[in-house]
Design a protein around this nucleic acid. Structure first.
Lengths: 112, 112
DNA sequence: TATAAATATAACTATACGGTAATATAGTTA
DNA sequence: TAACTATATTACCGTATAGTTATATTTATA
């Protein structure tokens, strides 16, 4: 039950999902989008990143099914379509906080 | 409450944590370790990867606090010290399954 | 002390990836 | 149709990263 074999292919798919989350700019875009819909220009403005850069990141996340897109006139309107993203970030964030707190406590007894 | 500012530094720390999980070999090592303790040689044998490669990956994850190490004679014995790793992988895995099922259903009505 | 074994580190290579500038592609409006 | 706007794509560059080979380091043993 526990130690199922994980195929190389499965490992790569999981790794690829994590890889999409392993870039600060993509995290910033996702955090900027949050639960709203935004067009590319709005994301560009909010993140202060280049248009091509934002577009490329959004395309990558679209292909992975992390965001979805709809067109409205000239605008491409994106939203986060995979809510588990936020769950993943929350888990990581909590863990990091915990970890730093533990390290801080480990240093608490040292005299300056 | 929801849309807190996330500093560049925080974004990078979170991204770095995801980056460590974004490599199939590291995932394989973590999955191999599971809840057991193993020395480097055992991990090398189980993963069929190079010794230097495994050692380097373990070092990176050690520094990040994902695994811990203890020495016993000649051996370096590692174990996963961050259980949230498995939680993260589970969430991703479930999401991927769901996503593929949805795509499969979307194609169900097409005549071959 | 010399040798062997387990692990870590350094140096190197090939590749992947992020950012940017320039250009292409729609879609809109005059 | 021509000019304009929003977005996407291409080409390129610099850097980061995974894997490998060779070597260093550490500990045990003859």
């Amino acid at each position: 039950m526990m130690n199922e074999e994980l195929s190389e292919e499965a490992l790569e798919m999981i790794a690829n999902r994590f890889r999409l989350l392993s870039d600060p700019m993509r995290l910033k875009i996702l955090h900027t989008l949050g639960t709203q819909e935004m067009n590319v220009g709005e994301v560009v403005a909010a993140t202060k990143a280049g248009q091509a850069n934002v577009s490329k990141h959004l395309s990558a996340m679209l292909e992975a099914g992390i965001v979805s897109r709809r067109k409205e006139g000239l605008n491409a309107i994106y939203r986060v379509s995979d809510e588990t993203i936020f769950e993943l970030c929350d888990v990581v964030c909590s863990r990091l906080k915990e970890q730093f707190k533990r390290r801080q406590n480990a240093l608490a007894g040292i005299s300056t």
